Measured scan of single mutants.
Amino acid sequence: KKRTSIEVSVKGVLETHFLKCPKPAAQEISSLADSLQLEKEVVRVWFCNRRQKEKR
């Protein structure tokens, strides 16, 4: 599977969401993915990776 490069503008939206809610529910991930025209899996993994980054 190819890596998905995420646009800077999209990263901004994801970051804003992350600050409000670092662990979104599946439904939130779905609606976020739809509005950003990304796959749900890509958004889910982004949040996973972002949470791990917080720990470091």
Rank of each mutant, 00 (worst) to 15 (best):
R50Y: 05
H17F: 13
V42P: 01
H17L: 07
K53S: 08
K55R: 12
T4Q: 11
S35E: 13
P24W: 06
R3N: 13
V8E: 15
I6N: 09
L14Y: 00
I29A: 00
S31T: 13
E41M: 00
N49W: 01
S30F: 08
K55L: 13
C48N: 11
K20H: 03
Q37C: 10
F47A: 04
F47V: 02
E54K: 05
L14H: 00
S9T: 12
Q52H: 11
V45F: 05
V42H: 01
I29E: 03
F18C: 03
V13C: 06
E7I: 08
V45H: 11
L38S: 02
P24K: 05
V10M: 13
Q52N: 15
E28H: 04
S30E: 14
V42T: 14
E39K: 05
L38H: 02
L19A: 10
S30T: 11
L14I: 04
S31L: 11
S35T: 12
V45R: 11
G12Q: 13
R51Q: 09
E7N: 15
A33L: 05
R44A: 10
K23F: 14
R56C: 08
E7D: 15
E39A: 06
E54T: 00
E41S: 07
G12C: 11
C48P: 02
E28R: 03
R44P: 01
L32C: 04
E54S: 04
H17M: 12
I29T: 07
H17N: 06
V43D: 04
E7G: 15
K11A: 15
K40G: 06
I6D: 09
L19K: 06
L32R: 01
L19W: 04
T16H: 14
H17K: 06
V8D: 12
H17S: 09
D34N: 07
S31M: 13
K53P: 01
T4S: 14
L32F: 01
K2P: 05
S31Q: 12
F18S: 03
E39S: 11
S35P: 02
L36Q: 03
S30H: 03
V8C: 08
F18Q: 00
K1S: 11
R44Y: 04
S5E: 15
R44V: 01
Q52E: 13
V43S: 01
T4W: 06
A33T: 03
L19P: 02
R44Q: 11
A25W: 02
P24R: 07
K11G: 04
E15N: 01
C21N: 15
K11V: 11
K53Q: 09
L38C: 04
L38I: 13
E39R: 05
L19V: 07
Q37S: 11
A25V: 06
V45T: 15
K40N: 09
K53G: 02
K20D: 04
L14W: 01
S5D: 15
E15F: 04
H17A: 13
I6R: 08
D34P: 01
W46G: 04
R50C: 02
N49K: 11
D34A: 09
A33Q: 04
T4H: 00
E28T: 07
Q52I: 11
V13T: 06
A25D: 15
V43Y: 05
A25R: 11
V42I: 06
T16E: 15
D34C: 05
S31V: 12
K40V: 13
S31P: 01
E15I: 07
E7T: 15
L38M: 10
E7F: 06
L19T: 12
L14F: 01
R44D: 12
E28M: 08
H17W: 10
E28W: 06
S35A: 13
R51S: 05
H17Q: 06
T4I: 13
S35C: 07
L14S: 03
L32G: 02
K23T: 14
I6A: 06
S31F: 11
I6S: 10
V13M: 14
A26I: 10
C21I: 05
Q27V: 07
K20Q: 05
E28V: 07
S30Q: 10
N49V: 05
D34Y: 02
R56V: 12
R3T: 14
I29C: 08
I29R: 03
A33K: 00
P22M: 05
L19C: 07
Q37I: 11
F47M: 01
P24F: 09
S5M: 15
L32Q: 00
V42R: 04
D34Q: 10
D34L: 05
E28D: 08
R51P: 01
T16L: 08
C21W: 01
R51W: 09
V13G: 04
K2E: 05
K55C: 12
R51T: 01
Q52V: 07
V45C: 09
E28G: 01
S30M: 09
D34V: 03
P22I: 04
G12T: 11
K53L: 12
K1L: 15
V43M: 00
R51I: 05
P22Q: 14
G12W: 08
V43H: 00
Q52S: 09
E7V: 08
Q37L: 04
F18H: 09
V45G: 09
C21M: 03
Q27R: 12
T16R: 13
R56A: 11
K11S: 06
L32T: 00
V13W: 03
P22H: 06
K55P: 02
K23G: 04
E41A: 02
E7S: 15
V10E: 14
V10R: 03
E39Y: 05
E54V: 04
T4R: 07
A33R: 04
C48L: 11
Q37H: 13
K23C: 14
V45K: 14
P24L: 03
E41Q: 02
L14M: 04
R50N: 02
E15Q: 02
V8H: 13
L19Y: 05
C21S: 11
L38Y: 06
E7R: 11
F18A: 01
R56I: 12
R51V: 07
I6V: 09
S9G: 14
K1H: 04
V42D: 14
R56T: 12
V10L: 06
V45E: 14
T4N: 10
R3C: 14
G12A: 10
F18T: 03
H17C: 06
K11E: 15
T4L: 12
C21D: 13
V45P: 07
F18K: 06
L36G: 03
C48E: 15
F18R: 02
K55H: 00
Q52C: 08
K2S: 10
V43P: 02
K55S: 07
F18L: 00
L14K: 04
D34W: 02
Q27D: 14
V13K: 11
E7A: 11
R50S: 02
V8M: 15
R50F: 03
V42W: 08
P22S: 07
S30R: 10
W46A: 04
E28P: 08
K53E: 14
K2M: 10
Q52M: 13
S5H: 10
K55Y: 09
R51G: 02
K23P: 03
K11I: 13
L38K: 05
P24V: 00
S9Q: 14
K20G: 03
N49T: 08
E41T: 06
A26G: 07
W46V: 02
C21H: 05
V10I: 13
A33E: 04
V42Q: 09
L14V: 02
E39N: 11
A25Y: 05
K1M: 12
R3Y: 13
A33I: 02
T4V: 12
C21T: 08
E7M: 10
L19F: 00
Q27H: 11
W46L: 02
L36T: 02
R50P: 01
K23Q: 13
R50D: 03
V43E: 02
L38G: 04
V45M: 12
K53Y: 04
S5W: 10
K40W: 05
L38P: 00
R50T: 03
S31Y: 08
E41P: 02
Q27N: 11
K11P: 04
E39L: 06
